[in-house]
Structure formats: C-alpha cells, structure tokens
Amino acid sequence: MITIYVNDSPLEIRKNTNVLELLKELKFPIQGVAVAIDNTVIPTATWETHLLDTNNKVLIIQAAQGG
C-alpha cells in the first residue's frame, strides 16, 4: 500500500494503481473530470497507463452544470 493525497486528503491505495482505477474506486464519473498530479494535468488518454506513486498530490476537478 502507498499513501497519496486526493484533494488534500490522505488516501491509502494499492501500489501500481493507475489514474483510471483511482477514479473508479472513488466513484468519480469518467466524463467531465480533470485530473492533475503534482500540479501537472494528466491527459485522459494516459489515465490507464499513468501509475500513482507515494505522496503524489492528486487534484480531481468535476465539471458542474448550471447557469
């Protein structure tokens, strides 16, 4: 297990977890979400291959509709 920080909260996850697996585990929708790791935006096309590492700071932003 490793510790990462998701939106400033610590979270223990399995080693070799990728971004897509994290989003599914946290029950975030896949559409309408942006992910940054250590202040770098991660393109959607690489979510399945981008592995998380100890102490990564993950920011997940979900688009909101309204007006």
Rank of each mutant, 00 (worst) to 15 (best):
N39W: 08
N39A: 15
L23F: 05
Q65S: 08
D38H: 06
E21F: 03
I61C: 11
I60A: 02
M1Y: 10
V6G: 04
T40V: 12
L20H: 05
I42F: 06
T46P: 00
H50E: 13
F28D: 02
K24Y: 13
D53V: 10
V35E: 00
L22A: 04
N16I: 05
G32F: 06
P29Q: 13
A36G: 11
E25G: 13
A63F: 14
K57N: 13
K57D: 07
T44Y: 12
N7H: 09
K15L: 11
N18H: 03
I30C: 09
T54N: 14
Q62E: 13
G32M: 04
Q65N: 07
I13R: 00
G32L: 06
W47K: 03
V19M: 00
I30H: 11
P29W: 07
I60E: 01
Y5P: 02
K24Q: 15
K24T: 12
V6L: 12
L23Y: 04
I61T: 09
L23M: 07
V19P: 00
D53S: 13
T49P: 02
G66N: 04
T44M: 13
L11D: 01
Q31R: 13
I37P: 01
N18V: 01
V41I: 15
D8W: 05
T44C: 10
I2G: 02
E12I: 10
I60Q: 00
K57I: 04
D8F: 11
R14M: 09
A34D: 08
E48P: 05
N56H: 09
N56D: 15
Y5E: 06
I2Y: 03
Q62D: 06
I13G: 01
K15E: 14
T40K: 12
N7G: 08
N39R: 13
N7K: 07
L26V: 06
M1G: 14
K27A: 13
V19A: 00
I2L: 08
Y5V: 02
L11G: 01
E48H: 09
H50F: 15
V35C: 02
L51E: 12
V41P: 05
A63Q: 06
K15D: 11
K57E: 08
V58M: 01
V6C: 04
P10N: 05
K24A: 14
L22W: 03
N39G: 09
A45I: 12
R14N: 15
N39S: 12
I37F: 02
A34W: 03
P10Q: 09
L22D: 00
D53P: 02
E25I: 11
G32C: 06
L51M: 11
T49E: 07
F28W: 11
V6W: 01
P29K: 11
A63C: 08
N18A: 02
L22P: 00
A64G: 12
Q31I: 15
K24V: 10
Q62A: 10
P10C: 05
